Simulated scan of single mutants.
Amino acid sequence: MVSGDTEAVAPATPSVARTVTEVFAPAVWAAMMPLVVAVHATAPRWAAGLGWGLLALLFSAAVPYGIIWWGVRRGRLTDHHIGVREQRRGPLIGGLLSVLAGLAALVLLGAPRPLVAMVVVMFAVLLVVTAVNQIWKLSAHAAVSAGATAVLVVLFGPALLPAFGLVALIGWSRVRLGDHSTGQVLAGAVAGVLVAVPTYLLLV
């Protein structure tokens, strides 16, 4: 009975890890964070915050993910998580340029300061991930999720500290799927927090 239970549970584990990896991918955080920060910054003018957030989302998530999707469709990338480190440079640079363009648009149009700060954070984290990935496969999942969670703690207070458990779960999924080592995940998480918090606090 015990061995039968083990056999029933074990095959599901990669499926759980894959689900976590997909649901909490960097593109999801890049889409969610501008909306959360913009709505929070403009409350109770929810419609205005939503508009600003959607504009930022276009440049921080939609365009970068579109670049990756096109690369996969053309056969230039193996998958949408860009598992091969050598393939990451082009999409990451494309994402950086898109975020930079979005940042310029937000500043020129007078977007709320916290939203501008959040987009700068996203640019800074992506820049670090891009730089490190030239020589080592740092986990973008860990860096983005940890950096975003740290900003949420700054925004909403220590009550959100348990959310770092989600970052740990995401890191586990990357290691469980064999996409990263534990060291690459831990380094990504530390880099995300160390870049995100000072950058956001400096600009907000």
Rank of each mutant, 00 (worst) to 15 (best):
A143R: 13
L58H: 05
S60L: 07
G90F: 10
A47F: 07
A111E: 14
L58G: 12
S173T: 04
V190S: 01
V107A: 08
L58E: 06
V175A: 03
V63K: 02
A104C: 12
A25Q: 14
L77V: 15
G178R: 02
A31F: 14
Q184Y: 05
T6K: 11
I170T: 04
V197W: 03
A38Q: 12
V9C: 03
I67G: 00
L96G: 06
E86P: 01
A131W: 09
G188F: 04
S98N: 08
L160Y: 15
R18L: 12
V99P: 01
G147Y: 10
L50F: 11
V23M: 14
G49V: 11
T19N: 06
A163Y: 14
V23N: 13
V125I: 15
V9N: 04
R73M: 09
L166N: 11
L138M: 14
V154Y: 11
W172G: 01
P26Q: 05
V120R: 09
V121K: 09
T149H: 12
A124F: 07
L194D: 02
V197M: 01
A148W: 13
A56F: 10
V39L: 14
H80Y: 14
P11H: 08
M118R: 03
L126A: 13
G51K: 09
P158K: 05
V190E: 09
V193H: 06
L96V: 03
V72M: 07
S181A: 00
A140F: 05
Y65A: 03
E7N: 07
V204Q: 12
W69C: 05
A104G: 15
A191P: 06
A41E: 10
R176W: 00
G165N: 09
M122W: 00
L58R: 00
L96C: 04
V107H: 10
F59L: 03
G83R: 09
V23P: 15
T78Q: 10
V197R: 05
G66Q: 05
A38L: 11
A117D: 13
A30G: 06
H81P: 11
R88C: 13
V129H: 06
R174A: 04
R174W: 00
P14Q: 11
P158G: 03
V37N: 08
A31P: 08
L194Y: 06
V167G: 13
P114D: 05
A31E: 12
R85N: 13
T42G: 04
A140T: 06
P158T: 05
P64N: 06
A111K: 11
W172T: 01
L55Q: 06
G4C: 02
E7P: 00
L155R: 08
A10M: 13
R85S: 10
F59R: 00
S173I: 01
L55A: 09
P91K: 07
M1E: 12
I93N: 07
I67F: 01
A159V: 15
Q184E: 08
T19R: 07
R76P: 00
V193Y: 08
E7K: 04
A104L: 15
P91M: 10
M32N: 05
L100G: 14
G95Y: 00
W52F: 12
H80D: 15
W136D: 08
A8V: 06
V72S: 02
G75K: 05
V175F: 01
I93F: 03
T199G: 02
H81I: 14
A168F: 15
A12I: 00
A168Y: 12
V185I: 02
A61P: 06
T13E: 14
V20W: 02
H141E: 12
G83M: 10
A105I: 15
F59D: 01
E22C: 02
V167A: 10
A159C: 03
P34D: 13
